[in-house]
Nucleic acid binder design. Structure first.
Length: 894
DNA sequence: AACTTTACTTAGGAACCCACGG
DNA sequence: CCGTGGGTTCCTAAGTAAAGTT
């Protein structure tokens, strides 16, 4: 399985000879590109490989071997280089087709380029190839980074997309126009609404905000359109506010709240409102909806005007009605709208503020804290912190001196002077009863009666409905983390110097709120005030505070399904796609830079090579002593690598061993090109092991350079690019048209796995893995036995049927036959499941799926092969990637 | 400062198991 | 013997919050 890896980006343009390594492995295998198609067989072999991989945990390297084998990387490189050179001129836009070719070359290199490569290979490349193979690297962490965005990039890249969009939009606009007239009429009819809208029209924009996410009111629909249609249709304009009406009646109080809000907010402007709508009967509602639509349209037009003029403060008139429950069939297709101008994240934002955790409830009298053997009553403040520690006593954390020391230090700060005097030794503290108490509490929680659970669930939903959504530019959007982080002990990952410190309880006075000036501001809890209420629409957060452990800012932001997050995500993939058209050129540049006279340039070029080839993270500098000692590419130290002139028959091998993000160990042996190797030797000269390997380099220098090479390019883009590219290539390599759906899904998972290996998203094998596997194996065995028996039965029935020729026997035989078939299908399914599980033992697919793989690749694949999207993306993922599910066609290419 | 990426924890739900009643 | 329903078990998905990048 595993194997994979890597890609090699390498490109050795220049010299094919060197051979960079590169190849991406296919799932387990590396497949060389050329053959890719044929290679299916190879792919199968991969599987085998996969099995091996199990051991991977121990050594990553082993995995890599697989990948490398194909290689021929050198060839590939060469090919790439050739192409690149030829294509180099290609503009970003370069047709996808051309780009595709290139890509293929890159990754696998092997496939496409073979012919070309072959030439090169024959001669010099062989060595290289070997080396590359050996490298096998597994890429562990890559550099990640934000994709960020470069607007420009997006734009350019998107352009094509946009075009399509535009087309659609035009159509819509037409509709609108027609509808608009209607709207007007409606407006007239209903004065209330109209009033609101008008405001808008007249001068600025008025956005109506409706609570829901749906763009109900959207403009586009003509009157005749039914509500449904309305819902489904996305507003073309940027924000169209809608009001919803929704069907769903809110709980009474909610409705009230909403109304109040609305009225309040509107009051300034107009008022009127129709909040009452909730109460209105459906028929009426629909009418209203129509009206609203009209209104929206108006708004839009007004918006447009605004835009033209200027958008100073546009007032939005929100109406809120929160309707809870929403079936949410309505989807806001923001991706079909025009984008706002740069820097403006929203025009109208209203929310309820974050939810604070409940205050501390002192322990029951029966639960005692003991110090030095005797019961000691603590003040509530002290007791609370003792409780935090008590929950950890069975955890490894409490065996770490740093954790205990930090805890004691902070605990003493909350003690009274008497307590402080008494409690001087942690080892004399007995937290057992507290621990048991909390265990019991969670136990009791699980054992709640059905009614209690139901009640709790309802309460939670009510909270979610009240605090979990905001109104942004007329749409109801889900908030990601509306609960303020509760107090507790800081759990750093890895060897964090601050582990065990007390994370303080936050009060509203610590929290800053961000919302529209014209919205109803969130109310702080009774008796409290916010630290500040600001109205900054150039940022996406709704609330922020400074956390006391590291002094970092924390934010309340929207859920990944929101427009704001989705757009950013989309932009990220567009930047990565853009890199596809520049990568060969960039590789040529850094290869050339290996020879630079300037040390700084050479370091930069070598670092970039690692980032491209191994998907290392950028590696920012960190404050020593404040965080765990982890590194990325630019922050690598001499002690993190070893150079081997020759190892295991490979030349110029670099051995990495360091702790990356989250203190996850990265170990890998990679054959590199000679020039890189020589450079590394020079970088390490006269340095101590704790000195920086790239002492003339940091992430800002690197990113600045990347920015010059391609707009919007940063170190992390390479990860996204290589990950998505690998997925696409692997999918086309592994998927066979004739496979049943289960097999196709297995292929998908294998492609996903190749990416996880590339990005080094490994996981510890689940603790119960063995058991689970045993159980599965057992099931398979049983199933086989059942099938055996069923077949026997079937044969008997067959014979009887033949002998007697009776109808009844015939039916019986058919029945048996069918049951055998069913059983065999079940068996296949189980076997596939077992294979998948085994191959996935130490690989985490989630992270790459969520953060690195362009969802349009997956969606296109599903559409092309008729695989239900639900088989690949769960509900959350479908919500997050709704834009991709909607826009990607079967022929989408990354 | 503002985001994205990441691992880990927990809640929730489906699958499973078993006793009981028809 | 089968169906039902309640209780478990197991696994996935949602949520939390730390740790990266830009």
């Amino acid at each position: 399985m595993d194997g994979p890896v890597h890609h090699g980006p390498v490109a050795n343009h220049t010299g094919i000879t060197n051979g960079g390594s590169e190849h991406v492995l296919v799932n387990g295998h590396n497949s060389s590109s050329d053959e890719t198609k044929r290679s299916k067989e190879g792919s199968s072999s991969k599987h085998h490989g996969s099995s091996k991989h199990s051991g991977s945990s121990s050594s990553h390297n082993s995995k890599s071997k697989h990948g490398s084998s194909h290689s021929g990387s050198s060839l590939n490189h060469s090919s790439k280089s050739k192409e690149s050179s030829s294509s180099s001129g290609v503009p970003k836009e370069s047709s996808s087709s051309s780009s595709k070719h290139r890509d293929d070359k890159h990754k696998h290199s092997s496939s496409s380029s073979k012919s070309k490569d072959s030439r090169s290979k024959s001669s010099s490349s062989s060595k290289h190839k070997e080396s590359s193979r050996s490298s096998s690297s597994k890429p562990k962490d890559g550099s990640s980074s934000s994709s960020s965005s470069k607007h420009k990039d997006k734009q350019s890249s998107d352009s094509s997309k946009h075009k399509d969009k535009h087309k659609s939009s035009h159509k819509e606009s037409e509709r609108r126009s027609s509808s608009s007239t209607l709207k007007v009429e409606n407006i007239k009819q209903e004065p209330k609404d109209s009033a609101l809208d008008f405001k808008v029209k007249s001068e600025t924009i008025t956005i109506k905000t409706s609570v829901k996410d749906e763009p109900i009111g959207d403009e586009e629909m003509p009157l005749n359109v039914s509500t449904n249609s309305i819902k489904s249709e996305p507003p073309k304009r940027k924000f169209v506010p809608s009001d919803d009406e929704d069907d769903v009646p809110l709980s009474m109080r909610m409705a009230h709240v909403k109304r109040q809000k609305i009225s309040a907010s509107h009051a300034k402007s107009k008022h009127v409102d129709s909040d009452d709508e909730d109460d209105i009967p459906l028929s009426v509602r629909t009418q209203k909806i129509k009206k609203e639509k009209h209104k929206k349209e108006h708004d839009i037009s007004s918006k447009v005007k605004k835009k033209v003029t200027n958008t100073s403060s546009e007032s939005v008139s929100p109406k809120k009605k929160v309707k809870k429950e929403e079936p949410e069939d309505h989807v806001w297709k923001w991706w079909e709208e025009e984008k706002k101008e740069e820097g403006v994240k929203w025009r109208y934002l209203e929310h309820r503020g974050p939810l604070f955790s409940p205050s501390y409830e002192p322990l029951p009298k029966s639960v005692h804290f003991k110090y030095d053997g005797s019961v000691m009553k603590l003040r509530p403040e002290t007791e609370e912190v003792a409780g935090f520690y008590a929950r950890f006593i069975e955890h490894d954390y409490t065996t770490k001196p740093a954790f205990n020391q930090n805890f004691v230090k902070d605990w003493r700060k909350v003690m009274s002077s008497e307590e402080r005097q008494t409690i001087t030794d942690l080892s004399k503290c007995n937290f057992r009863e507290l621990f048991n108490h909390y265990q019991q509490v969670s136990e009791d929680r699980k054992n709640r009666s059905k009614e209690q659970k139901k009640k709790l669930k309802e309460e939670n939903e009510a909270i979610q409905n009240e605090y979990g959504f905001c109104t942004m530019d007329g749409y109801k959007q889900k908030i990601g983390n509306f609960r303020i982080e509760p107090p507790g002990l800081f759990r750093g990952r890895g060897d964090h110097p601050k582990m065990g410190m007390l994370k303080k309880r936050l009060m509203p006075e610590d929290v800053m709120i961000n919302c529209s000036k014209d919205s109803e501001f969130p109310k702080p809890p009774p008796g409290h005030k916010w630290k500040e209420v600001r109205h900054d629409n150039s940022v996406t957060w709704l609330a922020s505070w400074t956390e006391n452990i590291q002094g970092q800012n924390k934010y309340v932001m929207l859920n990944p399904s929101s427009k704001l997050k989705g757009e950013k995500d989309w932009q990220k993939y567009e930047t990565a796609r853009k890199l596809k058209n520049h990568v060969e050129r960039i590789r040529a540049v850094y290869r050339e830079d290996w020879k630079s006279k300037e040390m700084k340039t050479r370091q930069r070029a070598v670092a970039l090579y690692f980032i491209d080839k191994l998907a290392l993270r950028a590696g920012n500098e960190k404050e020593e002593g404040e965080t765990a000692d982890t590194v990325g590419c630019c922050s690598l130290r001499v002690e993190h690598i070893k150079l081997h002139e020759e190892v295991d028959g490979q030349e110029c091998v670099v051995e990495f061993d360091f702790l990356g993000k989250d203190s996850i160990r990265y170990q890998n042996r990679v054959p590199v090109e000679k020039r890189v190797f020589k450079n590394l030797q020079r970088f390490m000269e006269n340095k101590r092991k704790e000195d920086d390997l790239f002492d003339r380099l940091n992430t800002s220098i690197l990113n600045k350079h990347l920015q010059d090479l391609m707009e919007g390019l940063t170190a992390k883009v390479f990860r996204t690019f290589n990950a998505s590219k690998t997925l696409q290539d692997q999918l086309s390599l592994l998927t066979k048209a004739e496979d049943p759906i289960t097999a196709k899904i297995l292929s998908y998972n294998r492609a996903n796995r190749a990416v996880a290996l590339l990005c080094n998203h490994q996981r510890a094998a689940p603790k119960t893995f063995g058991q689970q596997m045993d159980r599965l194996t057992e099931k398979i065995k049983e199933k086989k036995l059942v099938i055996k028996a069923a077949k026997k039965d079937m044969k008997v029935a067959k014979h009887e049927y033949k002998d007697t020729g009776s109808q009844g026997k015939g039916n019986l035989y058919e029945k048996k036959k069918k049951s055998v078939q069913r059983l065999e299908e079940q068996l296949t399914k189980l076997e596939v499941q077992a294979t998948d599980k085994e191959e996935n033992k130490e690989i985490a697919l989630g992270t790459s799926k969520l953060n690195y793989l362009d969802p349009r690749i997956t969606v296109a694949w599903c559409k092309k092969w008729d695989v239900p999207i639900e088989k690949i993306y769960n509900k959350t993922q479908r919500d997050k990637f709704r834009w991709a599910i909607d826009m990607a066609t079967p022929d989408y290419e990354f």
